[in-house]
């Protein structure tokens, strides 16, 4: 139980850290990383939920959800990076000023 709380709690902590970083750090790349940290937090929490004790097999549904979520997050990150790259290429400067 305590392990589960530790995992879940750190997931929430990651989520909050990500949110904080997303809000206060102007550079877009940091926002993108923040989003990924938030995602990691949510996935962490979900995985912690799957734990049902040492003897019982884990709940497969949250695992599957996390897998799907990761792929979605990767896709979004890839697209956002391409956007950022495009902005950089257009101006040669970083897109941080937005």
């Amino acid at each position: 139980m305590i392990t589960q709380f530790l995992y879940g709690g750190s997931g929430i902590l990651l989520f909050l850290l990500g949110t904080w970083s997303f809000i206060v750090h102007p550079p877009l790349i940091r926002k993108l990383i923040a989003i990924n940290v938030m995602g990691a937090g949510v996935f962490h929490t979900l995985v912690a939920l799957a734990y049902r004790g040492l003897t019982a097999p884990a709940d497969p549904v949250p695992h599957a959800l996390v897998l799907t979520g990761i792929v979605v997050a990767v896709s979004a990150t890839a697209l956002a990076l391409a956007f950022g790259q495009r902005l950089d290429r257009d101006h040669g400067s970083s897109a941080d000023d937005d």
Binding site: L28, K31, I35, A76, L79, F83, G84, R86, L87, D98
Partner: peptide, 10 residues
């Protein structure tokens, strides 16, 4: 457009 939509995406 790219900047605005990156913001939208985020």
């Amino acid at each position: 457009a790219v900047a605005a939509n990156l913001r939208y995406l985020l």
